[in-house]
Amino acid sequence: MHLFNKVTDYTTAQSAFFDGMTLLFGGFGGVGTPPGLIDCLIDSGVKDVKLIGNDAGFPWIG
């Protein structure tokens, strides 16, 4: 179990990623999607990840 402060960096967050995980993110629309976190997740190489978010904004963002 990883515990974070309210603000952390991508390297610290990336250490919590694992194959088969489910990741929920808040926000709404393109401005609510965390593109940096999603890029970090992709760069980590984890597989079979389920992303759950409320993003009905722009299809080219997030």
Rank of each mutant, 00 (worst) to 15 (best):
V31H: 13
G32K: 09
T22N: 08
D48K: 11
N54A: 14
I52D: 12
C40T: 00
N5A: 10
F4P: 05
T12G: 03
L51M: 14
P59F: 01
G57D: 04
G36A: 14
Q14S: 06
G32S: 14
G57W: 01
D19V: 13
F28H: 15
Y10V: 02
P34F: 05
L41T: 00
P34C: 08
L37T: 05
S44I: 00
V31Q: 15
G62P: 02
N54V: 10
T8C: 03
V46K: 06
T8K: 02
G27T: 08
F17T: 05
A56C: 14
G29D: 15
K6L: 08
K50D: 13
G27N: 10
L24A: 15
V31K: 10
G26M: 12
G32Y: 09
M21W: 01
Y10M: 07
A13G: 09
D19N: 15
L24T: 14
F17C: 05
D48T: 06
D48L: 04
K6G: 11
N54S: 13
A13R: 07
L41S: 00
I38C: 05
F18R: 13
G32F: 10
V31T: 14
T12P: 01
L37R: 02
D39T: 06
F25M: 11
F17Y: 14
Y10R: 03
I42A: 06
D19W: 12
K50L: 15
F4I: 03
S15E: 09
G57Y: 01
K6H: 09
T33Q: 10
G29V: 15
K50F: 12
G26E: 10
D55M: 15
D19E: 15
H2V: 04
D39A: 07
V46C: 08
G36T: 11
F25H: 12
V7S: 00
D55F: 13
D48M: 00
G30S: 14
D9L: 00
L51C: 10
A16T: 10
D43P: 03
L3C: 07
C40P: 01
D55L: 15
H2F: 09
S44D: 01
P34R: 04
